[in-house]
């Protein structure tokens, strides 16, 4: 089983991102679940979502404690939340950042999801949309296929700027 913990802020689309990643994995022929860790629904508050991917049905509903991958959509969260908590020794991190980041011995992917969203004018109620470009980055990290990422996005969003954003993130991110 592959377990992903996604850190975001309310309004960034982290919950939808988790659903889209799970859906893409499902389209790859895997079983997948996505769960938001709920709290009061507040703009800007730290939000955690969980994605589980496996070859067989998943029976776990409790939170992910030892993730294989941690995704951080807003690095400012790292000032108050220990995003690396429980991350497996060989676990990886994917951050939304213009610059590379060093986090212990973990492999850290970085990509400027915010910049990609803004360059395509993907903005909703003042917030750049990060979830669709994120799918491109997650595909580049080899967790879901590029095709399924695109399919998952277009099943939810009609605007093709979303798939364009994903393609751009896929191309921009260093493997």
């Amino acid at each position: 089983m592959y377990e992903i913990r996604l850190h975001s802020r309310g309004g960034q689309g982290g919950v939808t991102a988790a659903k889209l990643i799970a859906q893409a994995a499902f389209l790859d022929g895997k079983y997948a679940t996505a769960t938001p860790l709920y709290g009061a629904e507040r703009r800007g508050a730290p939000v955690v979502s969980f994605i589980r991917i496996d070859d067989k049905p998943i029976r776990i509903y409790s939170q992910i404690r030892k993730p294989d991958l941690v995704i951080v959509l807003d690095t400012s969260i790292m000032q108050t939340v220990d995003v690396l908590a429980g991350l497996k020794a060989d676990g990886k991190v994917l951050v939304n950042s213009q610059h590379p980041m060093e986090l212990g011995s973990h492999k850290v992917y970085h990509t400027d999801l915010t910049g990609i969203a803004l360059s395509l004018d993907l903005v909703l109620a003042g917030n750049p949309i990060l979830n669709t470009p994120l799918l491109g980055a997650v595909a580049k990290a080899g967790i879901i296929s590029r095709e399924s990422a695109q399919k998952a996005i277009s099943s939810v969003f009609a605007d093709d700027r979303n798939t364009k954003a994903a393609v751009k993130a896929f191309e921009d991110m260093e493997p």
Binding site: A18, Q23, A34, T35, P36, Y38, I58, Y61
Partner: peptide
């Protein structure tokens, strides 16, 4: 349905 645990989880 268990609130959140099942109402909010996404599954196939």
């Amino acid at each position: 349905l268990d609130g959140f645990l099942l109402t909010h989880i996404t599954q196939p």
